[in-house]
Write a protein that binds this DNA or RNA. Structure first.
Lengths: 193, 193
DNA sequence: TGTTAATCTTGACACTGTCAAGTTTGTTGT
DNA sequence: ACAACAAACTTGACAGTGTCAAGATTAACA
């Protein structure tokens, strides 16, 4: 750092301060100039690392997605000695909890149509979206433990149903204008019918 | 209209052009000045009707929510002679279809944390959120038709599960970066287990 | 008909994203 | 060691933004 002309690691600093600002002040109030100032560089410095604001947001989004994925894996790991059903519920709870702990991340991750996640490279299909992979793995383990046999099609339908339920509950829990009468945790207990 | 100093119905014109712009160019590119220009009025004119940009967006949001609700009711009405289960599926399909037809509305309706819907006045609780009321009505009819008896708690849990599943599927269907292998309609067929 | 309040305009301000041009520094080839 | 080059960063400018204050126009009403 210090007072060098070259920052040293501006790219990562921009991402980190960007995440902090989004979480503290909301996405709306994140500006390139503000992030630059937070990193102690001039207002145009970010353009050496990102084509435009969109590209910085995309990088921030990828970074948040990584943290989200780690968060899910950690929660599942904590109950790794118990049943797959417990693990799925644990994952669902963490899924929602993550966004309640970081209220601005939900909108940021899922609802910037102009931003596409680039975890590695290219578009993300369900098949290589890490949270989905985790759920898939757990669900297959669940089917094994229960001795349930399903066709591939039935499996996918069930998977999408579970995933979308969790996603939907997170969505509802994050909506400030819609309140459920029961705490959201209650809706996750019977995630698998 | 004409060349009068007083527009006549500027408030509604701002809302209508606002909706059009959001749907044509996306929410990001909606500015107060642009809407004002579209209405043929000076850049500060909107301030006679809305405190700030947020308040205009809030009015637009309420207007879109109304259209959304109407859209759902219409689709349910089209199958009013069939079973409640069919109606629920029809509603689910329309729920998703509405946002696929108006790609910018999804983010706009659900993910502007700073905007709260004011359909009549005050916050919206699940209890008086019209789409939820519709689903509730259909679900109770479904239970009657099937002769299923549930406790109030069980009823609510099932309702939230159905609602969040539909919401989640809409969410997934609207995500450009996540693609399912099957068309989203397939995941709605077995909405009720 | 005169007063008042609502509606709209004009002008200004700070802030935004972006670009062009110039400056500093690390790297690389000889 | 040194020149050449490319990457990283600065400075300055531009159009567009939300918002406010002050003034102009008009409708409504006493």
């Amino acid at each position: 750092m210090e007072d060098k002309y070259h920052h040293g690691n501006l790219r990562q600093a921009l991402i980190d301060h960007g995440i902090r600002i989004i979480n503290e002040e909301g996405e709306q109030s994140l500006s390139l100039r503000k992030v630059a100032a937070a990193c102690g560089v001039s207002h145009s410095a970010p353009y050496a690392h990102f084509k435009d604001k969109e590209e910085l947001l995309s990088a921030i989004k990828a970074s948040v997605t990584e943290r989200f994925t780690e968060y899910l894996y950690r929660s599942v790991d904590e109950v790794k000695d118990e049943s797959a059903e417990k693990a799925i519920v644990a994952m669902g709870r963490s899924y929602v909890k993550f966004f309640l702990e970081h209220p601005d991340y939900y909108q940021f991750l899922f609802y910037n149509q102009k931003i596409t996640v680039h975890l590695t490279a290219g578009e993300i299909h369900e098949e290589d979206y890490p949270p989905y992979l985790l759920l898939k793995e757990l669900f297959f383990r669940y089917l094994g433990e229960k001795g349930i046999a399903l066709s591939d099609e039935e499996k996918e339908i069930e998977l999408i149903k579970i995933w979308s339920t969790v996603q939907g509950i997170a969505s509802i829990a994050c909506m400030e204008n819609v309140k459920t009468t029961k705490p959201w945790e209650d809706y996750l207990d019977k995630l698998i019918h």
